[in-house]
Write a protein that binds this DNA or RNA. Structure first.
Length: 585
RNA sequence: GCCGACUUAGCGUAAUAGGUAGCGCAACUGACUUGUAAUCAGUAGGUUGGGGGUUCGAUUCCCUCAGUCGGCACCA
């Protein structure tokens, strides 16, 4: 999908279209007041105060119609500059504009405005020369949006739209949006029998169906296998813990609001755990450690529960319970670099093997002015951030820095990906933490016999199994690689009366080799069964008829292709087993 | 949580200016015996998301609760 904000020409076009939208809204709703109307990756929006009037999507066609009228009228878009005091006078009845003007720095700042016919807006520009150039637009949705993005403020109404140079580009874009909806993991999850939710169980609590759990198990085995090779030790800890545990870690202070409320049992207070770091801290602290033992790498597919805002829930991408592919690496200061590098390499290796190419790295740092969120120790923070930056530069990894995105206990490297529908999110993460080991009083004995505090790397490669599945379903459009597919081979006899015996023989052989194989022996036409095989995204459809029986061969068609391949049965079996083992895409 | 929309059979949907609902797929039964994306016929399946109100009568109008979706805010 094209990033409009990063395309200079489209960016100007969309920005101008935002003004066009505002002008049309002003015509239809004279009382409307306007906040800002920026260009975003997906097009543009404008935040509008309409008082008591509430727009719905049904109002958009009328606004579009008015926009087209203005376009037809063909006014030039003219830039002019005024002084700050002139601007304050000109917009004196508009509190939003006054707010914008007053926030500009110096007294004599020149403020630029753009006018088109009867409409003028504050704007740095640039804009297209004439509204006639804004022909190919579409308004997409309306929603509420907090003023200045602050939930303590009132809500404005936001109208989203998009604009292109040609009608064909617009059509293509709208078609892409439709296509994206089709590969939304919530739709695929339902169609392919991967997960379900139930009102009675509760919202945000997904349940994995047999097909989904096969994918889950394969992913779990895959990543744990990699971790074992790297010297990780896996543990199993309970999905709840005492409130004291989280007071010790600091999570209670920082995230109490986002945890399920505490429960009291026999005078003790517990919470469903939002995070399993404290459990792993306790495991480390369970025994004495020598510098010779470090790094110690403790991993767990760990279930956590977070009280996510209801509006944030989204299938298995974000639920109120999920399983992290978590691990905590307890290291000496000297080992930070090599362990961090090893984690980054593991991320790159996994992404490469799973053919994930569309991602970017973010270095999440603290906002030093935020004295509430972050653990108060400037030296520790500077040390941690410098260390991380140095490691990343040494590795030569491309990343962008994000101020204010760090965890309360330390800076982190996040891998950001974009889902089919919705906002970018974090898939993998690696976090540097000098804080929790101190809070839990962890130590190891150095070579001089002195107690030292280890450093902890928190890391999750698949993020959570849940979110990873959501992402990967969307990436693959549900056509998973063979090793992950719930059903790998679908055997379809042309005629049950004559071909079932041979089909059964193949079924048994594959089954014996732990291939997930299905024999479709229903009394239906071949075309019918082929269609269903494709819709269920089964990678291999194997057709068995007279030709195959006579020659001891099979014919197969790979899902998504039109080509039929015939080969000896033994060769096919070898091929399938090898492909599964190699985890080929 | 906030703003808005939506909720009809397992799934996808239609309809009613207020008179208790159709269709397709899937399921089941039978016929057909089939060579690469839907064979034909029949059967069954709904207190139209829950509760309340208005009304002679509510699936339709109103209130409320729940859930879903689009955004916003949040995301250790």
């Amino acid at each position: 999908m094209i990033n409009i904000k990063e395309d200079a020409k489209l960016s100007v076009l969309n920005h101008s279209c935002a003004h066009l939208l505002a002008q049309a809204v002003k015509h239809l709703y004279p009382e409307a007041l306007f906040w800002v109307g920026p260009v975003i990756e997906e097009g543009f929006y404008y935040d509008i105060d309409l008082g008591d009037i509430t727009l719905t999507e049904e109002d958009l066609p009328a606004i579009e119609k008015e926009m087209k009228k203005i376009v037809k009228d063909g006014k030039n878009i003219v830039r002019h500059e005024i002084s700050k005091s002139e601007a304050l006078a000109q917009f004196k009845d508009d509190p939003y504009k006054i707010d914008l003007i007053e926030r500009m720095d110096e007294e004599d700042t020149i403020i630029s405005c753009y006018s088109q016919g009867d409409f003028t807006d504050l704007c740095r520009g640039p804009h297209v020369a004439n509204v006639k150039l804004l022909k190919n637009f579409k308004l997409l949705k309306v929603s509420g949006a907090y003023w200045k993005g602050d939930a303590n403020n009132h809500m404005l109404q936001r109208i989203y739209g998009v604009c292109f140079e040609t009608p064909e580009d617009l059509e293509a874009h709208l078609a892409e949006l439709e296509e994206a909806k089709m590969r939304d993991h919530r739709k695929l999850g339902k169609d392919l029998g991967i997960f379900m939710t139930s009102d009675l169980v509760g919202k945000g609590l997904p349940m994995y169906l047999p097909n989904g759990y096969i994918i889950w198990e394969e992913l779990e085995n895959y990543i744990k296998g990699k971790e074992k090779k790297l010297g990780y030790q896996h543990v199993l800890t309970p999905p709840l813990g005492s409130v004291e545990l989280y007071k010790t870690s600091g999570h209670w202070e920082h995230y109490q609001e986002n945890m399920f409320p505490k429960m009291e049992v026999e005078g003790e207070e517990f919470v469903l755990r939002p995070m399993n770091c404290p459990h792993h801290m306790m495991i480390y602290g369970n025994s004495i450690h020598s510098y010779r033992d470090l790094p110690i790498r403790i991993g767990e597919i760990a279930r956590d529960c977070r009280f996510e805002a209801s509006g944030a829930l989204k299938g298995i991408e974000r639920g109120r319970t999920f399983c992290q592919n978590d691990a905590h690496l307890f290291v000496t200061k000297e080992q930070i670099k090599s362990e961090f590098e090893s984690v980054v390499n593991l991320i790159l290796e996994v992404y490469h093997e799973l053919n994930i190419t569309n991602y970017r790295f973010e270095l999440s740092l603290r906002d030093p002015s935020d004295k509430v969120k972050y653990y108060p120790d400037d030296e520790m923070w500077n040390n941690a951030e410098d260390t991380l930056r140095k490691v990343l530069n040494d590795i030569g990894l491309e990343y962008v820095e994000k101020i204010g995105e760090a965890a309360f206990y330390g800076p982190k490297l996040d891998v950001q990906v974009k889902p089919a529908v919705g906002n970018e999110y974090t898939l993998s993460t690696c976090q540097l933490d000098f804080c929790l080991p101190m809070r839990f009083n962890l130590s190891y004995i150095d070579k001089d016999g002195n107690k030292q505090t280890p450093v902890v790397l928190h890391r999750a490669i698949l993020g959570s199994i849940d979110r990873f599945m959501a992402y990967y379903l969307e990436e693959t459009k549900g056509l998973l690689p063979l090793w992950l597919s719930p059903v790998q081979v679908n055997i379809i006899p042309v005629n049950n009366n004559y071909h079932l015996e041979y089909a059964n023989e193949i079924f048994a052989k594959l089954k014996d080799l732990n291939v997930r194989v299905n024999l479709d022996d229903r009394e239906e036409k071949l075309g019918y069964k082929m269609r269903e095989s494709v819709m269920k995204k089964i990678p291999y459809a194997v057709i068995i008829g007279n030709n195959e029986i006579e020659a001891k061969t099979i014919s197969y068609r790979k899902c998504g292709t039109e080509e039929t391949v015939t080969m000896p049965l033994d060769e096919f079996i070898e091929k399938i087993v090898a492909e599964i083992k190699e985890r080929k895409n």
